[in-house]
Structures are given as structure tokens and as C-alpha cells.
């Protein structure tokens, strides 16, 4: 297939599946809280709706940085789609993409001059201290499989069985990372309702939601590829639905944590994960 067509197709799939999964997550959360909840396509509809809504550019914003930072979020997740489903490239590159995602989160908050965004920005820096160690799960995968290239990791799993069974603590760490990126999660301090959704408040909302759908799809895709491996498209879809439902259960039943508690919980989990995995690898 033509490379560009392949990329466009994968980006479109990532956007549509990601949006519907996020809508599904809201639906499951609503049912747990005994509400009827919005339809599953609500997130997708919202994305389209926000493309038609008016956006004002505040006088206090740092132009043109204020617009470019939202484009940056889209750029890195399109790059992630190319590294992931299109070329099955290096896992280390995902680490870089995730690091830049944290930077975008931080600066989308501070670029508008809004006090809520500013708080979100400071919280993004705090949470980076906890989420980057969680991403260090990559090193454990490297120590186990001897490679960082996704296609080789899939081959390794075809020969030795799923990594989910051999390094479960690493999978747990990655799951906590996915959980922290989901909406309404106990760790989503940067998007907390106490700071009016933080950095998301005043940017081009439809555009941000587009990138977030892709990022949700990609995080689940990496989890399934790295820890289960060698799935067909239906397998991916089932896996994503299961993880999303599981995340929805956790989010519906937990309150959003105070920033300090959130960071300390993540750091503790990261510490347990790294030390535990290294001990498991040695013995």
C-alpha cells in the first residue's frame, strides 16, 4: 500500500477508535454511578462540535506559541502513530514522545496566562517527576528481551510467551501510566475539575480532543503490543475495550487525589515496579 495512504488510514483509525473508547469509558463510568450516561459516540460528537464553536484568543496569551503548542500535541501523536502501527520502530522513541507530551501539557497550561492553566502547569511538572520513572518500564523490557525495537519484541514474545506473564510488575507500571492519562482518573491532577480542567480550558478544544483520542489509542496499542504481542486487529480491539472498561471501573470508584498524594502514589508504584522487576529478573 502507498505509505501516505497507510499513515492516513492509521491516523484515522486511531482517532475514531480512540474517541469511541473514550466515549465507552464515560458510558461505563455512568452505569457504575447508576446514571444512564451519554451515548458511546458522545466524545466523537463533542470533538466535531468543538470544531464549529468559537474560540477567543486571550490578550494575555503568548502568541503564536499559544496556537502552536496545540499543534505540537497533534504532531507528536501523529509521529507516535508512524513509529507504532506503521513502522513498528523503536520503543525508546515512544519514551521521547511521551516526554514531549508532558512538556506540551506543561506549556499548554502556562501559555495562556490563565491562573488555572498556571496551576495545571506547575502540577504537570510535579507529575512528570512521577510519570517519567513509570515510563522507565522500558528499561525492564529491554533487560528482558534485549531489544527496543517493537517488531523484535513481538517476535520475542512469539517464541517465549507474553511478557505480561514474565514481567507482570512492569505491566502494572505501564497500566498505572495509562490510568494516569485517562480522563477522570485519580491521578489526572493536571486536568482536575478543581482547576477548571487545567490546561484544557481555553485552547482549541476540538483539536485537543482529536489528539487526546489518538494518544489514548496509542497508549493502549503500545501496552497490548509490548506485553501481549502478535495480536490481529480484532484482538487489539477486544484488548482495548477490556482495558478501557477496567480503567473506567477504577475511575468511577475513586476520587481524584490531592496532587501530593497522586505523585507519591505514582512514585511508590514506580519504585515497587522497578525494584520488584529487577529482583524478578535476577532470580
Amino acid at each position: 500500500m502507498n505509505l501516505m495512504a497507510n499513515i492516513l488510514l492509521n491516523v484515522t483509525i486511531a482517532f475514531l477508535v480512540g474517541s469511541i473508547l473514550l466515549g465507552f469509558q464515560r458510558k461505563v463510568m455512568a452505569r457504575i454511578q447508576m446514571r444512564p450516561g451519554p451515548p458511546i459516540i458522545q466524545h466523537l460528537l463533542h470533538t466535531f462540535k468543538f470544531f464549529l464553536k468559537e474560540s477567543a484568543f486571550p490578550k494575555t496569551a503568548a502568541m503564536p506559541f499559544y496556537i502552536a503548542i496545540t499543534a505540537m500535541l497533534c504532531v507528536i501523536w501523529v509521529a507516535a502513530v508512524i513509529v507504532g502501527p506503521v513502522t513498528e520502530g523503536s520503543l525508546l522513541l515512544f519514551f521521547a514522545i511521551y516526554a514531549i507530551h508532558k512538556i506540551v501539557e506543561h506549556n499548554a497550561g502556562s501559555s495562556s496566562g490563565s491562573p488555572y492553566g498556571k496551576l495545571s502547569c506547575v502540577r504537570a511538572v510535579f507529575s512528570a517527576a512521577a510519570e517519567v520513572p513509570l515510563f522507565a518500564v522500558l528499561i525492564i523490557i529491554y533487560l528482558k528481551t534485549g531489544t527496543m525495537i517493537l517488531s523484535s519484541i513481538v517476535t520475542y514474545q512469539n517464541q517465549h510467551g507474553a511478557l505480561l506473564l514474565s514481567i507482570p510488575l512492569a505491566a502494572l507500571m505501564f497500566f498505572v501510566l495509562i490510568l494516569s492519562k485517562s480522563p477522570y482518573s485519580p491521578f489526572s491532577i493536571t486536568k482536575g475539575k478543581d482547576i477548571v480542567s487545567g490546561y484544557e480550558t481555553e485552547h482549541l478544544r476540538g483539536y485537543l480532543m482529536f489528539s487526546e483520542s489518538i494518544s489514548w489509542y496509542m497508549l493502549l496499542w503500545i501496552f497490548l503490543t509490548v506485553f501481549i504481542g502478535g495480536l490481529n486487529p480484532v484482538g487489539y480491539l477486544i484488548g482495548m475495550v477490556i482495558i478501557t472498561a477496567f480503567v473506567a471501573f477504577i475511575n468511577a470508584l475513586t476520587p481524584i487525589l490531592n496532587p501530593n498524594h497522586s505523585v507519591m502514589t505514582q512514585v511508590t508504584l514506580a519504585f515497587i515496579g522497578i525494584v520488584g522487576s529487577v529482583i524478578l529478573l535476577l532470580y
Binding site: 505509505l3 499513515i7 491516523v11 499543534a71 497533534c74 501523529v78 508512524i82 483539536y207
Partner: peptide, 22 residues
Amino acid sequence: VYAISIVFIPLTILSFGLLSMA
């Protein structure tokens, strides 16, 4: 192709959003 897709897919959507907003 990679350069075009990384730079121009987001720009297409951004400019479309700026054009379509009320």
C-alpha cells in the same frame, strides 16, 4: 512522506479548525 505526514497532517486539521470555527 514521514516529514510531510508529521508536519502537514496536524497543520491541515489545525487550519481546518480555525476556518470552521464560528
